[in-house]
Design a protein around this nucleic acid. Structure first.
Length: 213
DNA sequence: CGTTCGATGCACT
DNA sequence: GTGCATCGAACGT
């Protein structure tokens, strides 16, 4: 079942928690690739210094201000695309960044795409690493700026509920940001091998939190 | 195990 | 001109 718009039209931390275990699906040129979401982060409003809406409306962040249930894709560090699901009502800029997937369909195509974009031999990429990290998962799924603003409730890029029950959830600070570090708005499937940064924040360290803050 | 650092393009001030 | 919501190779312990 494709998640309806009402799923996204809620407080972003609720959407974040409920997205763990859902399936991100991309269909392109007749082929379908998908994976179970195992790690994501919330970026909420102009008051969140790490959110792209912090400077107020700009050309790039316009999708954050649009209706919920759409994709916000942007290009980062000169080489990576990152994909978000826009949340909350139109005019309320917020989104969930998808950080890692467990590959589910199309692992062969994922591996070819990752090899092509990274220049590494396909055989050197472990299955658990195919969609591990936000830049890696967009490469594996073939997501670029062409998918920016797409409606996630219908069409070629969707998020679906296929009845997967996630393992224990943990909360930690968001990864890779310099501001807003005190907010523990990263949620992940604790101990899952496809979660990024496993050696630092995935397994029972001091950064593992079982409750929101 | 851990940390450092280069690649690379663009939005924004 | 500055600074990224990153990745992975290289190197140190």
């Amino acid at each position: 079942m494709v998640l309806p718009r009402a799923f996204y039209d809620r407080p972003t931390l609720d959407v974040l928690e409920d997205l763990i275990g859902k399936i991100l699906v991309h269909e392109r040129r007749g082929s379908r690739v998908s994976g179970v979401i195992v790690e994501a982060e919330a970026y909420v409003g102009e008051d969140d210094p790490a959110c792209h809406a912090a400077p107020g409306p700009t050309r790039r962040n316009a999708p954050l201000y649009g209706p919920p249930g759409h994709a916000y894709v942007y290009f980062n560090y000169g080489m990576h695309y990152l994909v978000n699901a826009v949340t909350e009502a139109e005019g309320s800029p917020a989104a969930v960044l998808i950080r890692a997937l467990e590959p589910r369909e199309g692992a062969g195509l994922m591996r070819r795409r990752r090899a092509r974009t990274s220049g590494r031999p396909a055989s050197s990429i472990a299955a658990t690493d195919l969609c591990r990290g936000p830049g890696n998962l967009t490469a594996a799924l073939g997501i670029t700026l062409a998918q920016n603003r797409l409606d996630l409730t219908s069409g070629s890029l969707t998020i679906q509920d296929e009845g997967v029950t996630p393992g224990p959830l943990a909360w930690s600070p968001r990864v890779g940001i310099r501001v807003g570090v005190s907010r523990k708005w990263r949620c992940y499937w604790a101990g899952h091998p496809s979660v990024s940064g496993a050696s630092r924040t995935n397994l029972g360290s001091s950064e593992t939190f079982r409750a929101r803050s």
